[in-house]
């Protein structure tokens, strides 16, 4: 084929010959199994380099400087920003709060999501199943800002519905103004929003369980718990773990909901690490310090991911063995 096209180029007019040569070169390039995949990757690579790699490198560089929008003369500080952050009690307090937020939130969402997912998995013929599922998924579709605004009104101590109910029993509650209740009140909204996601993941995970194995278990009259332990869980766990991983990373970054509902207050009882980062970067405009914190958080998120992946790999290796 190549010889044929070379022959055709030789007989063509000089201008056409050039075009045909170019075309032939392109065809050769596209046919090359080593080059073609790389060509396909170029657009996404450009995008990735422009929007991920360069900003990340820039952020790493900034983290070694005293760099503020307010004072244009940046100063090289070496590792001082990192040292300050690691010795800052407020950062640790905020980080501790964030871990509680992530652990409590994701655990409850996973447990509830799994239970509800199981319920819907086994009830294909349930009347109104579609409507029930649609309604169940609605919170996940609402933006966190809108959900935060709804719940601010629901929690409002003078006219909110929660306090109205509490008042009927002679009590009074100020959920977002009470230092003991605010964290739980905001966490509840997060759980309300993201449990549907875990239901969805559970349904997807359960859908991946081979029917043949389930039918065999049915024939063998295997108890439900055994079926769950030996068939459902081993097959569903990869997708479930993926869901937990996604929720963990997302939960670690929570900002919008808290920002709208409490701004980290009352006091600093709901001040999560993303809020602290935002405040330092975009209120204090201390980009050097904030870059150092952002890098630490990025590494923490990578560590999370690695641990999950390690656990997943470990269990799959055990299974194979």
């Amino acid at each position: 084929m190549q010889a044929e096209s070379t022959e055709r180029i030789a007989y063509a007019a000089p201008r056409t010959r050039g075009l045909m040569r170019g075309r032939a070169f392109l065809v050769r390039l596209l046919n090359d199994i080593r080059v073609f995949p790389a060509l396909l990757l170029i657009p996404v690579l450009i995008f990735f380099i422009l929007w991920n790699v360069i900003p990340t490198l820039w952020m790493i560089g900034l983290s070694f400087y005293k760099y503020s929008l307010m004072s244009p003369n940046e100063r090289f500080l070496g590792l001082r920003n990192y040292n300050d952050i690691l010795n800052d009690v407020q950062v640790w307090a905020s980080l501790g709060r964030t871990f509680v937020w992530v652990f409590a939130g994701v655990s409850i969402q996973t447990a509830l999501g799994f239970l509800l997912g199981l319920l819907f998995w086994g009830s294909r013929d349930m009347p109104g199943r579609r409507i029930a599922l649609t309604m169940l998924f609605a919170p996940m579709i609402i933006t966190p800002i809108a959900a935060g605004a709804f719940f601010q009104l629901i929690y409002e101590p003078t006219f909110g519905v929660v306090n109205w109910v509490v008042r009927q029993f002679g009590g009074n509650v100020n959920l977002l103004g009470d230092t003991n209740l605010a964290f739980g009140a905001v966490l509840f909204v997060d759980i309300w929003m993201w449990t549907p996601f875990m239901i969805l993941i559970t349904l997807a995970a359960l859908g991946s369980v081979p029917k043949a194995e389930l039918e065999a278990a049915e024939v063998d009259r295997l108890p439900w718990l055994q079926r769950f332990r030996h068939i459902i869980l081993p097959n569903a766990k990869f997708i479930l773990m993926l869901g937990i991983l996604l929720r963990t990373i997302d939960s670690f970054k929570t900002l919008d909901l808290i920002y709208l509902m409490t701004r980290g207050g009352p006091g600093n009882t709901t001040d999560l690490i993303a809020l602290l980062l935002r405040r330092q970067a975009f209120e204090a405009l201390e980009f050097g310090w904030a870059s150092a914190l952002a890098l630490i958080l990025l590494l923490t998120a990578i560590a999370f991911t690695s641990i999950y992946l390690y656990i997943l790999n470990l269990s799959s290796k055990r299974q194979e063995a």
């Binding site: 103004g177 009352p266 006091g267 600093n268 001040d271 209120e283 204090a284 405009l285």
Partner: peptide, 18 residues
């Protein structure tokens, strides 16, 4: 703004009883 953020945190922590 940096100085304000600090004292808003402190003052509201006290006002809220934290």
């Amino acid at each position: 703004s940096e100085m304000l953020a600090v004292q808003q945190e402190g003052f509201t922590a006290f006002a809220s009883g934290q």
